[in-house]
Design a protein around this nucleic acid. Structure first.
Lengths: 247, 247
DNA sequence: CGGTTAATATCGAGA
DNA sequence: TCTCGATGTTAACCG
């Protein structure tokens, strides 16, 4: 058997009646397809916060994993959304088509009411491959472990993810003179928050070790803001400029 | 004149040839429509980092403001994307349809290569309305300014966004005995990072004021994690439980 | 533009 | 489930 409407990977209705749209959406959700609806709608959200959006033309995407996205013609981010794990429902009256995506923990609900549907689509398909990403903080860590002298001559890594009462330290090691060093990694330019984070780790480790000599704190990132640089000095912390990848 | 293919708010091609898809996409971009393409493709990104994604069925959205989104059947987030401000381009060979979205500052490029296109759509429409959101940190601030006693009897707000060397303080004020108080607001349950942030502000303000008496630090949020609670005690900071909205 | 912080952040790992 | 920290975070606001 070749492609029939129900095995085809893309099914589309243009300018359907609300009833026809409702049936197509229900069918798509049933088949665990990725369903899109474009038309004039209002949107309400209630949960961790609450929001309303008056009528306009928007693109709604319902994913089989329970995610829901409402996109306008502008912006990278959806104007409203719901995370994976929600239950999608569709219902229809004479004048309105209602899409709802709900979940509990936390209890929240997204409601999209269509006055007019211009297009409904249901997409099936296969996608077994995963994204391969490079230039991450993990790449930066590996680069330093491969060549510790990038930080300073004589630096020796002793542990990664070393646990402290304040959380896990990215790299823990010692310098040429045997002093303990806490290293905090950031893949991009850092602000004051990263300095605070490093200071927390240094404090926690000093208590843990009952160190006689103060523990050194090393912030490693491509660059640092002025304010963060001053904070580093105030807190007796150090900075080393280094990128996640060699070039 | 009523709806012709070029004035209609939604135009769709199903299972087009790559050449036909290319033409429809170019036309949609030209008309500043929201363009979607579903089909089998590979995706490459190069810019702040770099990524590759092998062939699979995905949904690509090109927005007239320059944003680009590549969605799989799973996840709330696009697997690849490009922010608003990019230039979208489409080109076609015998075997491949290439979508590219580029920008500078930073220089980055997203490339989507389709081997097969199952659907192309171009959506026009109007959406003049904006999202009305409540339950934000700003709502929490307004709630306290309206009724300072929610924090404690005798508290008097003196400034919002008061600048310090460590950044802007949410609310600065004084207590019943005239002691300086720094208030940090969070709309949801807080962890150790918020405690560090507040500690930074208190330190900065004590230096600024050359205060004889220590400045008080008040963290205001719906609740606090155990670890953050211990950090608060360690740093001599206080906590007040309060939600962004009354109910 | 950069600097800083909020967000219905999202997402994933670990306890 | 909660907690915690990374993210090509994104987005808004301010100087």
């Amino acid at each position: 058997m070749t492609a029939s409407p129900h095995t085809s990977r893309a099914v589309t209705l243009e300018q359907p009646s609300l009833a026809a749209a409702c049936e197509a959406i229900a069918d798509g959700l049933e088949r665990e397809a990725l369903v899109t609806v474009f038309g004039r709608c209002t949107v309400d959200y209630e949960g961790r916060a609450a929001s309303t959006l008056d009528a306009g033309d928007r693109h709604v995407m319902l994913k089989p994993d329970g995610a829901a996205l409402v996109h306008t013609h502008e912006g990278q981010q959806p104007v409203n959304w719901q995370p994976p794990g929600c239950d999608h429902d569709v219902a229809c009256t004479d004048e309105t088509l209602l899409l709802e995506s709900r979940r509990s923990t936390p209890d929240e609900r997204l409601s999209v009411r269509f006055q007019q549907v211009l297009q409904v689509s249901a997409f099936s398909g296969t996608d077994t491959n995963e994204l391969a990403l490079e230039g991450t903080e993990e790449d930066l860590r590996q680069r330093i472990l491969d060549e510790p002298a990038l930080l300073e001559d004589g630096f020796t890594p002793l542990a990664t993810e070393r646990d402290t009462p304040a959380g896990a330290v990215d790299i823990y090691g010692e310098d040429a003179s045997g002093r303990a060093v806490v290293v905090e990694l950031k893949r991009r330019r850092v602000g004051p928050d990263a300095v605070s984070q490093l200071r927390r780790y240094v404090d926690a480790l000093e208590r843990d070790l009952h160190a006689d000599a103060a523990v050194r704190g090393l912030l490693v990132a491509p660059s640092v803001t002025d304010r963060a640089d001053r904070l580093l000095a105030d807190h007796g912390l150090e900075f080393v400029a280094l990128e996640p990848t060699a070039e």
